[in-house]
Computed example of a mutant assay.
Amino acid sequence: MGTEEAAELEAALTAAQAAAPVPPLARLAPILVDVAARLDTGRGFCLLRGLPFDRHGAAAAEATLLELCTHLGKRLSAEGSPVARLIGPVPEAGAASGPPRFHSEACDAIALLCLANTPDAAPHVLISAGAVHNEIMRRDRAALAELYEPAPLIEEGAVVERAVFTMTEGAFAARYTRYAVEEAAAAPQPGAAPLSAGLRPAFDLLDAVCAEAPLMLKLEPRPGDLLLFNPHLIWKRRTLTEAAAGDPEAPQEFRRLRITMEHSRRTGAAGA
C-alpha cells in the first residue's frame, strides 16, 4: 500500500471516529479488486499489515471495515451488527479427544481485523484445503472418494446434505464441519440415509492430515492487521471466541466480518 492509499484509509478512520460518514475508498479500490482476485482464484488468503485500524477506536474501525469490504462483496445479513467482536483464547476444538480440527464457514470470504493482541498469544493457524485434498489423495483414494460423497449435516437448524470436497465447472471448493455431520448422525431424520461405513475413517484421516505441521501456516496478528481469506479454499483453526455483550475490553481484540462475493464457491445441498 502506497502513501496516498494509507492517507485515504487514515482519513476514513478519522471521519468515522468523528461520527461522520466514511468517505468512499477510491484509491484503495484497485488494491481491493486485486485482493478479491487472490481470494477467488489465487492462494485464497491475503494479509494486509501495518494498517492504522487500531488507532481510532473500535467503532471507527468497524465502520471503516464495513466500507472497505463493500469493494469485495456484500456482508452477510445478521441480527444486530454484522461485525462480530472476538476475544481469545478459546480451547482448540478436539484438543481433548484427538487432533485439532479446522473448520470452514458458509460464506465466500472472512475479514478478520486485529485491534489488540498479546505477544504470548497463540498463533492463528491456516491450512490449504487443496493441500489437504492432495495429501489424502496420495495416501488413500478410497477415503478421498468418501469425502466427495454428500452426507447429512445440521446447518442453521436444518438438515442438508453436503460433501466435504466438490468440483463444479472446474472450481474446487471445500467445506468441513465434522461436528455438524456427527450431530445429524446422532439424531437422524426419518428417511435419511445412514452415514457410510467409510466416512468416519475418512474424517479421521482428514483430521490427521490437518494436524501435520508442514501443511500449517502460522500467523501472529499485530494490531492493525487485516486478514482476509476464502473459507472454501483456506481453513482456519478456531482460536478466538465471540464476546458476550457488556464484556470489558480484553487483551486480545478482533473483529470478524463475513462476506458473500459475486463469484461464489458456496456448495449447496447434495454437494451442488
Rank of each mutant, 00 (worst) to 15 (best):
E8A: 12
A12D: 01
L13Y: 07
L25P: 05
P30Y: 12
L39T: 01
R43D: 11
C46L: 13
L47M: 11
R49P: 04
G50K: 09
L51Y: 01
P52K: 10
A59F: 04
E62L: 06
L66D: 04
L76H: 09
E79R: 15
G80S: 12
G80N: 13
P82F: 14
I87V: 14
I87P: 15
V90L: 12
P91E: 01
E92N: 08
S104L: 00
C107F: 13
L113T: 00
A121G: 08
A121W: 06
A121F: 09
N134Y: 00
E135W: 07
M137E: 14
E155N: 07
E156F: 13
G157A: 05
R162Q: 03
A163H: 04
V164E: 01
F165W: 07
T166R: 01
M167L: 15
M167N: 14
M167S: 14
G170H: 12
G170K: 13
A171H: 12
A180K: 06
E182H: 02
E182T: 04
A185K: 03
P188N: 03
R200P: 02
P201I: 10
V209Q: 03
V209D: 02
E212A: 12
M216Q: 15
M216D: 00
N230G: 06
N230Y: 03
L240K: 09
E249T: 15
A250L: 14
R258P: 06
R258G: 06
T260K: 11
T260C: 12
M261P: 04
S264D: 02
R265K: 12
R266E: 08
G268W: 02
A269H: 05
